[in-house]
Write a protein that binds this DNA or RNA. Structure first.
Length: 488
DNA sequence: GCAAGGTC
């Protein structure tokens, strides 16, 4: 039995939608007294209220949010003007963190609520930026109430099981992750501001350029993102510029038999010297008997992809659906916030040992299209299951992107929501499947001392390719050949 | 007039 006077706790999420989703999940039980909503100082950041019990202790929960970072880093006033100092001074100039004008209403809400509470529970995203925002929230709240007991909830998916688990297993926030972001911010600011001022002014004078167009000054900005990007653009430009087309020659031969046509390619590839190629070609025509010198048969495996990280999701959505990375992440964010997939921003591409992969597959068994494949995966007789191989990356914050809730499609989904959810599910099912098996035959022949070869492939077992319709394994058949066989 | 990260 739970007892004692309820503790008042202030919960803070990184964005309004997460505050709403988590409150909704935590207030589902009858003992919550229902979910109440009231306004805070900020129009967008509502405050949700409900009762909850953590390890026999009653809580009165208030749940609100910020909208990303609360604070910004800026130079002190006297360094703000471009000509106020030599740009090099910006590496020593004092900087300060402050809450900008448009975030003051959120700050006031936090202060007012913090005064009424004994606990502060931080529900910021579980990545470095989230940890840093957590400490911004801590700073504002402890200014208003020195006695707060401060906790961190760790979660990767907005699903009931995980949210209740994180509430029952609160940890302390990690100062080191937050410090790493402080350093990043300071470096970006100092280098960005100093180099932008320096090179804009230098190049304007050096090339005597008119930097005024449409009443706007052109800025040659410098930062750690656009500068490598400029490098890629220049590198590609140079590559295209330096390409010189060159003629080349190659010899191919085909063999028609009752079983079909086989095309043999020259093992020399191609030659840039016309005379050489012509002489060899003449030799082959003069003495056209082909002798089979080797027939090699081997089993080949084609492995399913690693578990899905953000970059891979973006690359594959682009390749398979022609979706831009930006749009992919927007759609993925929607699916995540509605609880259908796990947190979509992760570098992790291997599942932890503790993950219950079978349960995730079970969820998909009822799907009209891929449900039967999920059933086959779980049937030991089918021997389709394989523990997923990892790609060796782990951001220590989130699992690979995977489905967290079954759906056969929702009313509010666009075509792209359907496509992306399908990609995440099919990719996940592919990861826990056996590789495809093929039989490959390579035939080498000799004509007048020149070597040619042809190969064909037959797929013996499609395995993961049955579910991962985005990939195929081109197989072409070639006729049967035997060692020593000769033909014209 | 400058960066980059969060989010709306």
């Amino acid at each position: 039995m739970a007892g004692g006077r309820p503790i008042r706790a202030l919960n803070v999420a990184e964005k309004p939608s997460v505050a709403k989703a988590v409150s909704g999940i935590l207030s589902k039980s009858p003992s919550s007294g229902g979910l109440r909503v009231r306004d805070g100082r900020s129009r967008y950041n509502k405050i949700f209220e409900f009762n909850y019990t953590i390890q026999n202790q009653h809580f009165h929960m208030s749940f609100t949010s910020v909208t990303g970072h609360l604070m910004e880093l800026e130079f002190e006033e006297r360094y703000r003007k471009w000509h106020s100092c030599d740009p090099v001074q910006l590496y020593q100039a004092a900087v300060k963190k402050y809450v900008p004008e448009d975030k003051l209403d959120i700050k006031r809400t936090l202060e007012e609520e913090a005064r009424k509470c004994q606990w502060l529970i931080l529900w910021l995203d579980c990545d470095r930026e989230g940890e840093n925002i957590a400490f911004e929230v801590v700073e504002v709240c402890t200014q208003a109430n020195r006695n707060l007991n401060i906790w961190r909830a760790r979660f990767s998916a907005l699903i009931d099981r995980e949210i209740h688990y994180s509430m029952q297993h609160l940890v302390r926030p990690n100062q080191l992750f937050a410090d790493a972001v402080d350093v990043r911010q300071e470096i970006d600011l100092r280098i960005g501001a100093s180099f932008t001022r320096f090179q804009t002014m230098l190049l304007r004078d050096a090339f005597n350029l008119d930097f005024n167009t449409d009443d706007k000054n052109i800025i040659l900005s410098y930062g750690p993102c656009q500068f490598p990007t400029l490098g890629f653009v220049v590198e590609r430009f140079w590559e295209i510029q330096s390409h010189e087309p060159e003629e080349f020659w190659t010899i191919n031969c085909t063999h028609n038999s009752e079983e079909g046509i086989a095309t043999f390619s020259w093992t020399r590839g191609h030659l840039f010297d016309y005379t050489c190629a012509a002489i060899i070609y003449e030799m082959c025509v003069q003495e056209p008997t082909a002798t089979v010198t080797r027939v090699r048969q081997q089993e080949k495996l084609k492995y399913p992809p690693h578990p899905l990280s953000t970059i891979e999701l973006e690359k594959r959505a682009s390749r398979y659906f022609r979706m831009s990375s930006e749009h992919t992440m927007k759609v993925a964010e929607d699916l995540y916030q509605a609880g259908f997939i796990s947190y979509p921003r992760t570098e992790t591409d291997s599942f932890s040992e503790r993950t219950n992969l079978h349960m995730m597959v079970q969820e998909q068994q009822g799907h009209p299209v891929w449900g039967s494949y999920a059933q086959r995966l779980l049937d030991p007789e089918a021997r389709l299951w394989r523990n997923p191989s990892g790609g060796g990356h782990d951001d220590k914050a989130h699992p690979p992107i995977h489905p967290t809730k079954f759906s056969a499609g929702e009313a509010g989904w666009s075509q792209d929501h359907h496509k992306l959810y399908e990609l995440v599910v099919r990719h996940f099912l592919a990861c826990v499947s056996q590789p495809a098996v093929g039989a490959e035959t390579t035939v080498d022949i000799d004509i007048a001392g020149e070597l040619f070869s042809a190969s064909g492939r037959m797929i013996i077992a499609k395995n993961y390719l049955d579910i991962y319709r985005f990939e195929s394994w081109g197989g072409s058949m070639i006729p049967t050949y035997n060692f020593g066989q000769q033909t014209l």
